[in-house]
Simulated scan of single mutants.
Amino acid sequence: MTQSSSTEPAGAQAFLAVCGNTHLFPGARCRVQGLSDPTAFAADPRPVELELRLSDDVVTEAELHPSRQVGPVLAVSAYTTGAGTTIEARTWLIREFARRGDDVELTIGGRAET
């Protein structure tokens, strides 16, 4: 039996994160939706699975992991953009978490060393 954290939606596998671009880069932003307590999550992020919806409506899987060595990171699966560009799997540092209404906005930092 797995334990669910207070930030997990009942019966769901992943939170939706809406991104404003077709790919991630330093300074890009994504808004995580459906968190039960966005203020607490922004202040103390926990590991969660995400479905990133990019601006071209492509959806890919990602995992958010707080890391003691480098800080929070976002591991994104490989995907193909709507225009057909293949983007390899990458891990990104998260520069900032901020509450924006009912969402938590992630600001992408640089690429994490893997």
Rank of each mutant, 00 (worst) to 15 (best):
L35P: 06
S36D: 12
S36M: 07
S36G: 08
D37T: 13
D37A: 09
D37W: 11
D37Q: 14
D37S: 12
D37M: 02
P38L: 06
P38M: 07
T39H: 10
T39F: 03
A40K: 04
A40L: 06
F41I: 03
A42Y: 08
A43E: 10
A43Y: 02
A43C: 02
A43W: 01
D44P: 00
D44W: 09
P45F: 05
R46E: 13
R46S: 06
P47M: 08
P47I: 07
P47E: 15
P47A: 15
V48I: 14
V48Q: 14
E49T: 11
E49W: 05
L50M: 02
E51M: 07
E51C: 12
E51P: 00
E51H: 11
L52W: 01
L52M: 02
R53D: 08
R53E: 15
R53V: 13
R53T: 10
R53P: 04
R53I: 10
R53C: 11
R53W: 00
L54D: 01
L54H: 02
L54I: 05
S55Y: 05
S55D: 13
D56E: 04
D57G: 00
V58C: 12
V58S: 05
V59H: 11
V59Q: 12
V59I: 15
V59Y: 07
V59G: 05
V59E: 11
T60R: 11
T60G: 09
T60V: 15
E61G: 14
E61I: 03
E61S: 14
A62D: 00
E63K: 13
E63G: 01
E63V: 14
E63F: 10
L64S: 07
H65T: 10
H65D: 11
H65G: 06
P66L: 09
P66T: 00
S67G: 06
S67K: 06
R68H: 13
R68L: 11
Q69Y: 10
Q69T: 13
Q69W: 05
Q69P: 01
V70F: 08
V70D: 10
